[in-house]
Simulated scan of single mutants.
Amino acid sequence: MPVDINELVAAAQSRIREVEPGDCLAGEALVVDVREPAEFAQGHLPGAVNLPRGVLEFQIRAHPAVACRTAGSPAPASLPLLLYCLTGGRSALAADSLRQLGFEDVRSLAGGLRAWRNAGLPVSMD
């Protein structure tokens, strides 16, 4: 039986770890914005890299930010990742996909960029 998108996101959220905006470990994790490039250009978390949801699973291991952080260390699967989108749905699905691909330390930002902004946290335009 088909499910709707809300059920799909809820199922993914039950299998992943979500973190609240105030609890993010920005310095420890590679922050990945899974929105489209045009959305990223309108504002993003400071230090985030843009890897859209549509290509994330195909490009994550080859992305320069991943290669840079894992040089001389264990495989990229052990790299802490914090994923986010606008409201948390796409990032939950993306975190679940990466978990299935063997990434061990993946988190999704609960409520996404909208919750981040509502918490009064900084947004970068660079």
Rank of each mutant, 00 (worst) to 15 (best):
G89P: 01
S78K: 11
G47T: 06
V34R: 10
A95N: 12
L83K: 10
D4F: 10
G43D: 05
G72F: 00
Q42Y: 05
G72D: 05
P122E: 02
S108V: 03
P80S: 05
A26E: 14
P64I: 05
L101F: 07
A75S: 15
A94C: 14
R69L: 11
A94K: 09
G47A: 06
A65R: 00
G111C: 04
S78W: 00
R35K: 14
R114Q: 14
A119H: 15
L109N: 12
D96I: 00
V123E: 08
P74T: 06
D126Y: 09
L56H: 12
A119P: 05
C24E: 00
L121A: 11
V31N: 09
E28W: 03
E7R: 13
L30P: 11
C85K: 11
A41Y: 04
W116H: 01
V31G: 04
E36K: 04
S73C: 06
L101D: 03
N118K: 14
N118Y: 04
L8G: 08
P122T: 11
L109W: 01
L86R: 15
R61V: 14
L30M: 12
L101Y: 01
A10H: 02
C85R: 02
F58R: 13
R53F: 10
Q42R: 15
E36I: 01
L113I: 15
H63N: 12
A67V: 08
A67S: 10
Y84M: 15
A26T: 01
H63D: 15
